[in-house]
Amino acid sequence: MDYTYLGRTGLRVSRLCLGTMNFGPETTEPDSYAIMDKALDLGINFFDTANVYGWKRGEGVTEQIIGRWLAQGGGRREKIVIATKVYGEMGDWPNESKLSAYHIKRACDESLRRLQTDHIDLYQMHHVDRNTPWDEIWQAMEQLVQAGKVLYVGSSNFAGWHITQANYEAKARHFLGLVSEQSLYNLADRMIELEVAPACESLGLGIIPWSPLKGGILGGVLKKIEEGRRSSERSQKEIERLRPQIEAYEAFCDEMEEQPADVALAWLLHQPAVTAPIIGPRTMEQLTGSLRALDIKFSEDQLKRLDEIWPGPGGTAPEAYAW
């Protein structure tokens, strides 16, 4: 396994991040345990979750599964960097969501209880809260850091402006601020290249791409359909919308003699600000199959062809759309 630093920190994490969103709803608890054990065997030390995963409001099903796995001991907690998130609705009452100091403190304590650990390595704000001032957010995060409950703070689904504003306010408080941004990023969804990626590179945030395969669109979807696999109605519409590009992409992967999913992950690993794409395996096979991406290298011509098939926004802002 390859490792890199998380943004500008001294924390080393694996180049692939184990996403756990399927644990509970799609993957049984015993199979989730097996996947996490195998991830450790493979050297994956970066695990991502969220308090809302499991999709039973307020229960934190996925965090509970991870907590019971950690409770088995064997050095599991000491070996992993665990990231979870705060923002989503955890109940019906007014202060059971978003980023007030009240909710941040309570949500952190509840995540710690479910995860059966005494600290969260990376505590991520799942979305922007436009109604809570940064002074309040950073004061709450500072208190968690001082109490030893949180080590680093990250963001998710932030715009470049939000990232800049957040870290400007943190610096004024002599606080480390954001060290990572978890964004939608893949060959077909490259909007973050306009402003989010440049902001992250400038301010020292590591990018953690979610949906690196665009919900399976970049995972050899046409071949799977030929084999008789079904996809959701939403996916079918997306496939038809992007069919010419998908056909060109899968043909390109055939020329490389590589699996489309591996090529998509490898492309992300070639992007300068990317720390680790999130792989969200439902099965052991999906987990182990992802490792090939670490070994794929591209020539300049191959990267150019991928840009032709899946064009980005044209570069960084404002040059991408102005002089």
Rank of each mutant, 00 (worst) to 15 (best):
A166G: 04
Y3L: 13
W138G: 10
D135Y: 08
S299Y: 03
L303K: 08
P318C: 12
N22T: 15
V179K: 00
S100P: 05
M141K: 09
F252D: 00
W69S: 00
G24T: 02
T28V: 12
G74M: 07
E195T: 05
Q182V: 11
R68N: 14
H174V: 07
A170T: 04
K56V: 15
G220P: 01
L222E: 04
I82G: 01
M21Q: 10
M256I: 09
Y3H: 06
S231Q: 14
E285G: 13
Y33Q: 10
A172P: 06
G75P: 03
M191A: 15
R113K: 11
V52G: 11
E258C: 10
W55P: 01
L268A: 02
R241N: 13
I82T: 06
S232Q: 09
A317N: 03
D262N: 15
E78S: 12
L222V: 07
D41F: 15
A322Y: 11
V179M: 00
A266L: 12
E78C: 12
Q302E: 07
A140Q: 07
C200G: 11
L99A: 00
F47W: 09
A266M: 05
K79Y: 12
P318K: 15
Q64P: 05
Q143E: 15
G7E: 02
V221N: 00
D189F: 03
H119K: 07
K56F: 10
H103C: 13
E29R: 13
T117G: 07
Y3K: 09
D301Y: 09
I246M: 00
L151V: 10
A166V: 02
R68I: 05
D307G: 11
A147M: 08
E96R: 05
G73I: 09
A140F: 14
S32F: 11
H119W: 15
H162F: 07
H174M: 04
L213S: 04
G67L: 04
A140V: 02
K105G: 11
E201N: 05
M284Y: 07
K79L: 09
V61N: 13
G206C: 10
E195G: 03
A273D: 10
H103A: 06
A71N: 14
W55K: 08
V150N: 04
D189N: 06
I208D: 00
R114N: 06
E96P: 13
W138P: 02
W210F: 09
R114I: 03
W161M: 05
G148D: 15
Y102K: 11
Q146M: 06
Y87L: 10
W134H: 06
K105A: 07
A188E: 04
L70Q: 01
L184H: 13
K79P: 01
H174T: 11
G206T: 14
T316W: 10
